[in-house]
């Protein structure tokens, strides 16, 4: 298991290398001259040339990539075109916030999703089930930014329970996390429901009931563990979705996360920041997948990491 883990981690290297080449080429292929963007419309030709030179953008592509790679392997991602700060600091400031928001969102999604899914399955085809279905339908359908504004209006402006925007205190994470996590909660609830209904129809469940176990034990101990397998798959997939969806939620709630930074950096053609941010996000994605596989192997002894 230990060596397998190492092998899986080693597989990160080609992924990261591939991503770095792809991002580098894409950045240089899209129109938009960083020197011109950064110097602004009114900059003189000399100003723009000065900026281009100071960024090393007047070098051949291969030289630029080689320099990027040789520095990156020792952890130096250069300095941001826009802010002149080390990229490591730019990313470092933001990554924690993204992880915090992502973790809070997935925690909310898993807790609410599983709870709603189990309740709907246990009371299947009753009005409780229908309400749960309706809520999860709405949860999947409402666009992030709209949901965010509605929550702000309800919980911040009317009820004054949570702050509107920013990231000063622990309270600040609640509304963005709910906004980001709700669609995932809805998906998880539906999978949980159908999976649990299927498991509850199995013979061993009938046996458990027949030997007189209380229903909560039947569901909680015997059915749930088996029914969770497809849910884990979905949770893994949803974490990838959360990385993407975070951009909009971060913008609406002015959350200083990595998604917003990346979008800003793309708009400003801040190449070093985009490169590093995409690498970090790709690595996170791979690690999340690895984590999902680990959870599998814990839940189901038949699954190994190979």
């Amino acid at each position: 298991m230990g060596t397998l883990l190492v092998r899986r981690l080693a597989a990160l290297v080609p992924v990261i290398l591939g991503v770095s080449v792809a991002v580098f080429l894409m950045l240089h292929a899209v129109p938009g001259d960083p020197a011109q963007i950064i110097a602004g419309q009114e900059a003189s030709v000399e100003d723009v040339a000065q900026v281009r030179h100071s960024f090393g953008l007047d070098q051949p592509l291969a030289v630029q990539y080689a320099r990027f790679l040789s520095r990156a392997v020792v952890g130096d991602f250069g300095t941001s075109f826009r802010t002149k700060r080390p990229v490591i600091d730019e990313i470092g400031d933001r990554y924690g916030y993204t992880l915090l928001l992502g973790a809070a969102a997935i925690a909310f999604a898993v807790a609410v999703g599983i709870l709603v899914g189990v309740v709907a399955a246990v009371f299947k085809h009753s009005w409780v089930d229908n309400v749960c279905l309706l809520v999860s339908l709405v949860g999947v359908s409402v666009p992030n930014f709209f949901l965010g504004l509605l929550l702000m209006l309800g919980f911040s402006v009317w009820l004054q329970l949570f702050p509107l925007t920013g990231a000063d205190t622990a309270w600040h994470v609640v509304l963005p996390a709910v906004t980001l996590g709700l669609p995932s909660a809805a998906v998880i609830a539906r999978i949980m429901r159908s999976s649990l209904i299927e498991i509850l129809g199995n013979d061993y469940i009938r046996t458990a009931r027949a030997k007189g176990l209380p229903e909560w034990l039947v569901v909680g101990r015997h059915a749930l563990r088996n029914a969770l397998m497809p849910v884990v798959t979905v949770v893994g997939l949803q974490m990838g979705y959360l990385l993407g969806g975070a951009v909009i939620v971060e913008t609406v709630f002015a959350w200083p996360g990595l998604g917003r930074l990346t979008v800003q950096a793309i708009a400003a053609r801040d190449f070093p920041v985009v490169q590093a941010a995409v690498l970090v996000l790709a690595a996170t994605f791979v690690l999340v997948n690895l984590l999902t596989d680990l959870v599998y192997s814990i839940l189901d002894p038949r699954v190994t990491l190979s």
Partner: peptide
Amino acid sequence: RVVPEDSARVLQLMS
């Protein structure tokens, strides 16, 4: 303060 979303800024002022 940085509040990128127009509507969120208006809500901040209102609240």
